[in-house]
């Protein structure tokens, strides 16, 4: 099933922040949504997971967090080994154990920034939640930390944003808030699940640059999930190509772009090229 070289990412086993071996996710009816996926990410390293919608990339992210929808069955092993936390296999771990792992160990920036935030709560209060839990801040210190966290994601008027509801700010700003909330957990591994797909092209670039800079500055490991080869290649060098839940190709972004081996990867590359040239044509 597993094409040669499909299990990639980290070269040495055991030292990774995240080690996924033979991950298989099945739907309630038993259909395999992710099949025998293996990869590892070392501390501070980055890995791209690329594939079209329905290829199982988001499910992989949820499986790592132990947040798969009820009814799905998961097998294999997902070992999270974050500094300061016990090395844990997410699969089979008890919920109360996972709870401690989420946030500090790994956390996610989701695709849709509007729905990913609580629509009824002011942004400051939402951001305060992880800050309070992880850093144990209270009162004025907490309020200051909220503003600092918003400044860090380069929101121009942090005081105003903190008092705003999610629907009152733009999509790009919401995604910055989501990133700030994820960073507030000080995670060892950040999973970015299509973080820029819902954004406009210009905003996309800004948010990507921000994410790139912050991940580097904090030395976090990054699992970057996208359907967009161009976006992935701007953030990470190493990618896995996922199709129908199966890793069909893995390796260096440059290699994959220049000499895709699997027909599916070839399609991805050509369509990315076509999009690129269309872009050039409409915006000379």
């Amino acid at each position: 099933m597993n094409p040669p070289g499909a299990s990639g990412g980290g070269k040495k086993g055991g030292a990774g922040v995240l080690e996924v071996i033979g991950l298989t996710v099945r739907s309630g009816e038993g259909r395999a949504l992710v099949s025998d996926l293996s990869f590892a990410i070392e501390p501070g390293a980055r890995l791209g997971l690329i594939g079209e919608s329905g290829s199982g990339k988001s499910l992989t992210a949820l499986a790592i967090m132990g947040l798969l929808p009820a009814g799905m069955t998961v097998s294999g092993s997902i070992v999270l080994d974050a500094p300061g936390l016990a090395r844990t296999d997410v699969i089979g771990a008890a919920e109360r154990h996972l709870k401690g792992l989420r946030g500090r160990g790994a956390t996610v920036v989701f695709q849709e920034p509007l729905t990913a935030l609580d629509p009824l709560m002011k942004i400051g209060r939402q951001l305060a939640e992880p800050l309070r839990r992880v850093r144990g801040l209270r009162g004025a210190a907490l309020r200051r930390a909220v503003v600092t966290a918003l400044e860090e994601v380069r929101l121009p008027t942090p005081g105003r944003v903190a008092k705003a509801y999610p629907h009152e700010i733009s999509g790009g700003q919401r995604q910055r808030v989501a990133i700030a909330m994820a960073l507030a957990c000080e995670p060892a591994l950040l999973i970015a699940d299509e973080p820029t797909t819902a954004l406009d092209v210009t905003v996309q670039a800004e948010v990507l640059a921000l994410l790139d800079g912050l991940v580097t500055a904090r030395g976090m490991a990054l699992l970057f999930i996208s359907h967009d080869l161009a976006v992935v290649s701007s953030v990470t060098d190493h990618v896995i190509v996922l199709k129908d839940g199966v890793a069909v190709e893995t390796g260096d972004v440059l290699d994959i772009v220049t000499s895709p081996r699997h027909p599916y990867t070839r399609d991805l590359v050509t369509s990315a090229r076509r999009l690129d040239s269309a872009l050039d044509w409409t915006h000379p």
Partner: peptide
């Protein structure tokens, strides 16, 4: 909802996230 998933991914317990959000 996505927001419930967000807060759980940030480390909230199910009960806590359900209660607050």
């Amino acid at each position: 909802s996505d927001y419930l998933r967000t807060f759980r991914a940030l480390g909230s317990s199910f009960t806590g996230a359900m209660w607050r959000h």
